[in-house]
């Protein structure tokens, strides 16, 4: 069985997340820096997944800087978003209200 390679980019060498370049189905394989991992969910363009295991409370690094902290452990290949990442500055809001999908 052939491996379907997904198109993702790492924006900075220190990043622990990588960014999706085109809408991608679950199960595709991300191959970056000589390492490979499988996507646990379908991912849309512009969204990000963990490229290494991230512990709860650890900083999420993108562009080489912290963009917030993990609110739970995040597995490699998992979607990093409102359910597991929160701002170190100001809570994000959705149409349902402030921090609505971001409760601990």
């Amino acid at each position: 069985m052939s491996v379907e390679i997904a198109h993702f980019i790492q924006l900075h060498p220190q990043d622990n997340v990588v960014v999706c370049c085109t809408d991608t189905a679950q199960g595709y394989v991300v191959a970056l820096n000589g390492e490979q991992f499988q996507l646990t969910h379908a991912i849309e363009v512009g969204h990000k997944v963990a490229s290494q295991f991230i512990h709860k409370g650890q900083k999420i690094i993108k562009y080489g800087v912290a963009i917030g902290s993990a609110t739970q452990d995040i597995a490699v290949g998992e979607h990093v978003h409102l359910t597991n990442l929160k701002s170190d500055y100001i809570a994000s809001h959705t149409r349902l209200g402030v921090n609505s999908s971001n409760k601990d």
Partner: peptide
């Protein structure tokens, strides 16, 4: 509220920073 619209999150952005 931050300067952060719901569409930002739908498009993959999670936090203000």
């Amino acid at each position: 509220y931050g300067s952060f619209a719901p569409g930002n999150a739908e498009g993959g952005l999670t936090t203000q920073e």
